[in-house]
Amino acid sequence: MELRLVTIPAIIAVFSVIIIGLSLQLDTSPPMIVGDSMQARSFPIFLMILNLMLCVILFLQLVKEKPAPVPLEGRETWGSMVLLLLFFALTITTDMFIAIPIVMFLLSYLWGERRFIIIALNSILTPVTLFFLFDKVLRIRFPRGIITNWYYG
């Protein structure tokens, strides 16, 4: 049997078992609070048991149908995910409004755009417009960082 047919049902099954384990660690409430209803853990455990049963059906289906393997994505897709991590790191360490233009620029570049002036304009004008729209019209205050500290004072 091919390993790829087992992978997805196995991931779902492991996830379900972990959730059941976590649910079993949840506190229980005294009967006077819960009454004839259920404990907080009961419903999630029921859901995960259902998921485990569905996993078995999915596994049997996959073995029977043998779907074609999913081709591995190119560097554009994996690179885009790395850029999401970069966005996370930059937002925490510098400013969300530094992270957005950098990630926008790199995303365009990664996806094959080579007109640097256009990508630079797109990467700067879009977050600036959105910033003022949300700040002035919707009155949203953005998280503190290098630029927002300077702007908000």
């Binding site: 969300m96 926008m104 995303l107 990508i119 797109n122 879009t126 959105l130």
Partner: peptide
């Protein structure tokens, strides 16, 4: 797509 989806990214996070 190379210009449109970076804009969508900014819209998503903000």
């Amino acid at each position: 797509t190379t210009l449109l989806w970076p804009i969508v990214f900014a819209l998503c996070v903000i």
